[in-house]
Design a protein around this nucleic acid. Structure first.
Lengths: 228, 228
DNA sequence: CGGACTTTTGAAGGACATCAAAATCTGTGG
DNA sequence: CCACAGATTTTGATGTCCTTCAAAAGTCCG
């Protein structure tokens, strides 16, 4: 029975080697296997801290989560914002190397790591999700290194807006769930520079800012040009 | 036999879920399974280009490889240097999103990707290596984002030196295989700033520079302090 | 309406980039 | 072994993008 399950897993594609990311992000829904437990977090509440024992892997059901690292003097780098359906908190070692916090009120599902490791094959979809999540994190991190290392402030904002739009928006209107401080710590800037870059893009007619957190991509082509 | 191999694999830890990085990096040696073919590359020779079909996964047998991304105007970000034993070129999609070049003369082993995907279980060690390689890349990328986004030039150099020392050196002497240009493009700086930062660390007695590419970590504690 | 928080704007400063040139290293051929 | 040409690295002078410090404007929610 043990071997049978494993054989079944390998007959389609062994999780660890199916490196192809499915074209559509799997939606978080009620049909998610019951191996996980659901928790909700209030705005700015900590989901796990840097150095915490990594007992779970997490998936966002609703809301937005940020994962970040801190230097001893308080400088912060947000490595990613996780939207609905995104998996976060996958770790190689025993402890979390990031902290995770709720950007706004949110719900997440927790999968116990030991459970994952010991009952392989019981939920091939979940295992696939983990691999996909890891691969997706890697791709995002690699693109983000180019942004952090080599792009100007305005280019960073342009890339960020296009990415958020792609992940959340159907049209060219976009609601930013996070503060300027969060954006700054994600892009390696200060809040003032973030604000000034938004203003500059607005003055150039590339975006509209009906309110601070509502962005309209008025000239997507110009944004794409800043993204190259 | 097929199932037997899989069972064997799972008895210790199934590749896709054993996220723990083995404490010691596996050494590249002659006993590496024969499924790969070996190629050598001259200094600065391209191993694969951005956009190339990702037909292989690679492992460094000797020398150093850099993987990098380019912006349209030539700005470059080196995401990682790969030393002996490191795996690189793992992709989620059909094509390489980086280019890979030999930093100096080097040898790499190529594993055909289709071969990996279709003959799973034939080489559990290799499968484990792939997963480990992916996980290791993710960890490195995440640490590097903090460096790129939030560290000063001197802090970047300090972190870089400590990392290289950890990966290559037994004692406090260190031979840098790459140029100042490569270091600059890895750390998001210019060659002039890299050079000035080296000089500053030397003046402070934290490192010694008998020659440009030979570094002695004279005061490791001070370096660690810059690394926090 | 009022107070706290977030965002924007302004002025000044600093860290890193750019431009330029000197110094050093590397390899090759005499 | 030395000379020399090219490449790499270092150093200097200046410029600029982003940060820092400060304050005004806008937003949220009781």
């Amino acid at each position: 029975m043990h071997t049978a399950l494993l054989t079944k897993a390998s007959s389609s594609a062994l999780p660890s080697l199916d490196l192809n990311i499915p074209p559509l992000r799997p939606y978080a829904d009620a049909s998610t296997p019951s191996v996980g437990s659901v928790r909700s977090f209030a705005k700015d509440e900590e989901i796990f801290g840097e150095g915490d024992r990594a007992a779970f892997v997490y998936k966002v059901l609703s809301g937005v989560v940020r994962t970040s690292k801190l230097l001893s003097d308080g400088r912060r780098q947000i490595d990613a914002f996780h939207l609905t359906g995104d998996i976060f908190g996958i770790e190689a070692g025993e402890e979390h190397r990031f902290c995770a916090e709720a950007v706004g009120d949110c719900m997440v599902i927790l999968y116990r790591r030991t459970h994952l490791a010991s009952s392989v094959g019981k939920d091939a979809q979940l295992v696939q999700d983990m691999t996909t999540g890891m691969m997706r994190s890697l791709v995002r991190a690699q693109n983000h290194m180019l942004l952090l290392g080599r792009k100007s402030a305005v280019e960073k904002i342009a890339t960020f807006l296009l990415d958020m739009a792609e992940r959340t928006a159907d049209d060219d209107a976009l609601d930013l769930p996070m503060s300027r401080t969060d954006i700054a710590d994600h892009l390696g800037l200060t809040i003032e520079t973030v604000s000034r870059s938004f203003t500059q893009l607005e003055r150039q007619g590339i975006i509209e800012l009906p309110s601070a957190r509502h962005v309209v991509l008025a000239n997507r082509a110009a944004l794409e040009r800043l993204n190259t």
